[in-house]
Amino acid sequence: MTAGAPAQLKPASDVPTLVVDSVSVAFAGIKALSDVSFTVVPGSIHAIIGPNGAGKSTAFNVLSGIYRATSGAVRFGDDNLLGLRPHRIARLGVARAFQNIALSKGQTVAENLMLGRHALTRSGFLTSGLRLPSATREALVHGARIREIADFVGLGDKLAKPAGMLSYGDQKRVEVARALACEPRLLLLDEPVAGMNAEESTYMAALIAEVRRELGISILLVEHDMGLVMGISDRVTVLDFGRLIAEGTPAEVQDDPNVVRAYLGTGEDDNGERGR
């Protein structure tokens, strides 16, 4: 954080452990995830890697409540996330940045970030429509916080621009900033550097590391870019065909014969340069 960070920036004390406990997901009889378990320790950066189709995105969709798991449990502190609708999960402090940019392109960056404050704010149709003092106050207080977050990710000068007019790399950063605007305790980053050039990618890696350092929250990361994963992760979970095939520190995982086989088997060509 560039400016003096307010106290609320450090909620590190109440970041709970995320326990994914033998979760399975099936679509029309096809298993997309089978019996996957892993634990994200509070304040750690945990990566999920695996070849295309390994079930990484499915795992994310289960965590954020988009897909329903067929069996298993996901515990976040005292709460079981399975069975909760996405907005309830968001309110528990799980925020997500999307791989395919899911911003409202016609709205400004500030408006997109304010959406991240949705669960933290109250104004309804009547209070905004009549511009009651509470709505105005809310807009001021949270607007200030949005500016801090934008400065933090280096977008402070672009708040008034429509999100769709930013460069690809900037849009990816808006994604992260919007997730941060939720004041998460667990941040889900879905391929944060996919499609970025080297410079943008380096910036993002530094940003992720700084988020953890400044906020002390847990970060769960899906990424193809092995350099990034091995450089910043504390632990790595490897999926292949919906199964967990390895888990450990980056060094352990890199030498794991299962992992080597999975990656060699599907070719080395998916280094995150897909799409866009």
């Binding site: 968001a90 997500r96 999307f98 899911a102 016609g106 997109n112 959406l115 949705h118």
Partner: peptide
């Protein structure tokens, strides 16, 4: 408006 552009994104950001 976010819901219009992407229901998934809106829901994930806490919109019911």
């Amino acid at each position: 408006q976010t819901m219009r552009d992407s229901e998934v994104a809106a829901a994930t950001m806490g919109v019911d």
